[in-house]
């Protein structure tokens, strides 16, 4: 394993970023923390989604920081209703637009319907609504920005919190090493709904993220994108390392970047020469500082196995 090894995207011409869409539909003046991963991701997502997009935002960090009256950071139509129901509200928006266009009450044009929800709003309280939306086949792209805990309310654990992380409700203590359960794999749950498109993404790979969001809207039917979003405030990581940390999560295999199109898996960023050790990712974060080498080893084994499983799925389904 080479320490200097960089993902595919790093081999792209360094000027490739200039090709990203210049339009910003998620604008400046929002109140996210310094170095906010989800806010960075939203910028990229909205560049990809474009003007003709309706956003349904679940309660959470991104809703709070982007819409405190009288200021909105949204340059597209946007609605927030509640925490657990963003997929349900989006289902209604989709049904309405389809019916109104069919009945000639709205002009026929392609409108992207996009849900933005956090990991609490997706893996926990909103899982039922998400499942319903995916199962019914709405033309909705659901993006979960996963910062691995309830950050908006003060870093309480969610079912997307990783094994061993210390949160305010799974604190590391004299007899506890933090969250004693493994992170819920919502992308796998979404894939089990046999929807046209499921992907994982990370704002540290903006062009990969932008391509995936665009792809999700090209395909008819529901799509789910799980966005790994570094939270310096909740994780206790230096804000300037947000992009670096996202890259490390990918390079260590903690958060592999892949897509599943009509059941066919593909790792969009892969490391043929092998993954970096997970310690490199874990060490910069206060939430993992207490971990013993044994726990780190457990995490390493799990990550290696999961990555292998993905590689197998890729091989089997691409066939």
């Amino acid at each position: 394993m080479s320490v200097t090894q960089r993902p595919k995207e790093a081999y792209l011409n360094v000027f490739a970023y200039r090709m990203a869409p210049r339009e910003e539909y998620f604008t400046r003046g929002h109140r996210a923390c310094q170095g906010c991963g989800p806010a960075l991701g939203l910028r990229h997502i909205m560049k990809a989604a474009g003007r003709d997009t309706i956003v349904v935002n679940a309660t959470g960090c991104m809703e709070i920081i982007s819409s405190p009256y009288p200021y909105t950071s949204w340059a597209v139509p946007w609605i927030h209703v509640a925490f657990e129901n963003a997929a349900a509200v989006a289902s209604g928006v989709d049904a309405a637009i389809e019916a109104l266009q069919r009945k000639g009450k709205l002009p026929r044009k392609k409108i992207n319907i996009l849900v933005i929800a956090g990991d609490g709003g997706t893996a926990d309280i909103g899982l039922q609504a998400l499942s319903g939306m995916l199962a019914r086949g709405h033309n909705v792209t659901y993006i979960c920005y996963d910062n691995e805990a309830y950050m908006n309310t003060g870093v309480q654990s969610s079912s997307a919190t990783p094994f061993g992380a210390s949160t305010t409700t799974t604190p590391a203590g004299k007899v506890s090493f933090g969250a004693g359960y493994w992170k819920k794999n919502v992308a796998a749950i979404a894939t089990a709904h046999n929807v046209p498109y499921v992907a994982t993404a990370c704002p540290s790979y903006p062009l990969d993220l932008i391509r995936k969001v665009k792809r999700s809207f090209e395909l008819k039917g529901p799509a789910y994108i799980h966005l790994f979003a570094v939270c310096p405030t909740g994780w206790g990581s230096p804000p300037e390392l947000t992009v670096r940390m996202g890259r490390l999560a990918v390079e260590t295999g903690i958060f592999p970047l892949y897509e599943v199109e009509f059941g066919r898996y593909r790792l969009t960023i892969d490391f043929p020469q092998g993954l970096r050790p997970v310690e490199e990712y874990l060490k910069n974060q206060r939430r993992f500082r207490h971990l013993s080498p044994e726990i780190v080893q457990q995490i390493q084994e799990r990550v290696t196995a999961e990555y292998q499983r993905l590689k197998t799925m890729e091989k089997v389904t691409q066939g």
Partner: peptide, 25 residues
Amino acid sequence: EKPTWRELPFACCIPEPGNSVYYKT
């Protein structure tokens, strides 16, 4: 920022897109 109830837009929507540019961080 502090409208009367009559000045507040219908259903307290924000009719101006992307107006957080007025809010300097």
